Amino acid sequence: MLREFLSHWSPRVETTPGERQSGALPYSVIDGRVVFLLITSRRTGRWIFPKGDIEPDMTPWESAAIEAMEEAGVTGQIAVEPIGSYRSSASADGSSLVDVDLYPLRVEHQLDVWKEMDQRLRHWAVLPEARRLLNDRALSRLAVLLQASLRARS
Rank of each mutant, 00 (worst) to 15 (best):
Ile39Asp: 10
Gly73Val: 02
Asp93Arg: 04
Trp9Phe: 13
Ile54Glu: 02
Arg137Ala: 14
Asp136Lys: 07
Glu81Gln: 14
Lys115Trp: 10
Val13Ala: 07
Asp101Trp: 01
Leu127Ile: 02
Pro56Tyr: 02
Ala130Asp: 08
Ser154Arg: 14
Pro128Gln: 00
Ile66Thr: 06
Ile30Ala: 06
Arg33Ser: 13
Leu146Ala: 02
Leu38Trp: 03
Gly94Trp: 03
Leu142Met: 00
Tyr86Thr: 12
Ala138Pro: 02
Leu111Gly: 08
Val144Pro: 01
Ala65Thr: 01
Ala90Val: 04
Ile39His: 07
Asp112Thr: 11
Arg122Thr: 15
Asp57Thr: 08
Glu116Asp: 15
Ser7His: 02
Pro11Gln: 03
Leu139Glu: 04
His8Arg: 09
Ala65Gly: 08
Asp53His: 10
Glu14Asn: 10
Pro50Leu: 11
Ile83Asn: 10
Leu97Trp: 07
Gly32Phe: 08
Ala72Tyr: 07
Arg106Cys: 08
Leu146Asn: 02
Arg33Tyr: 06
Glu67Gly: 10
Val74Met: 03
Arg132Ala: 11
Ala64Cys: 06
Glu71Trp: 01
His123Ala: 09
Glu14Val: 00
Val100Gln: 00
Gly73Leu: 01
Val144Arg: 15
Glu129Pro: 00
Arg131Cys: 08
Val35Ala: 07
Arg151Asp: 11
Glu71Asn: 07
Leu37Gly: 02
Ala64Thr: 00
Glu19Arg: 15
Leu6Phe: 04
Gly23His: 02
Val34Glu: 05
Val74Leu: 01
Ser41Arg: 15
Ser88Pro: 05
Ser96Glu: 15
Tyr103Asn: 03
Ile54Phe: 00
Glu14Gln: 12
Ser63Pro: 13
Ala65Met: 02
Arg87Val: 15
Ser91His: 07
Leu97Tyr: 03
Leu127Cys: 00
Met69Gly: 02
Ser96Asp: 15
Ser85Met: 10
Tyr27Ile: 09
Leu105Asn: 01
Leu142Asn: 07
Arg141Tyr: 12
Arg20Trp: 13
Ala92Cys: 05
Arg137Asn: 09
Leu37Trp: 06
Met58Thr: 14
Ser28Gly: 05
Ser7Glu: 14
Pro82Tyr: 13
Arg122Phe: 04
His8Ser: 09
Arg87Gly: 09
Arg141Glu: 09
Asp112Leu: 11
Glu67Phe: 13
Ala138Leu: 09
Ala79Pro: 06
Asp53Glu: 15
Pro11Val: 06
Arg33Ile: 14
Leu38Gln: 07
Gly45Val: 01
Ala130Glu: 01
Leu146Arg: 06
Phe36Glu: 05
Gly45Cys: 08
Trp9Ser: 08
Val29Asn: 06
His109Pro: 01
Ser96Gly: 07
Ser95Trp: 02
Pro104Asp: 06
Val126Met: 13
Ile78Lys: 02
Val29Pro: 03
Arg12Pro: 11
Thr15Met: 12
Arg141Gly: 11
Glu67Met: 12
Glu62Trp: 01
Asp118Met: 10
Ser89Pro: 05
Leu146Tyr: 01
Arg12Glu: 15
Val29Arg: 02
Val113Leu: 03
His123Tyr: 15
Arg137Pro: 11
His8Glu: 13
Arg87His: 09
Arg120Leu: 11
Ala143Arg: 05
Leu145Glu: 11
His123Gln: 10
Thr16Pro: 06
Arg12Asn: 13
Glu70Ile: 12
Ala90Met: 12
Gln147Trp: 04
Pro17Tyr: 02
Val80Ala: 14
Phe5Leu: 14
Leu142Thr: 04
Asp31Met: 08
Pro82Thr: 14
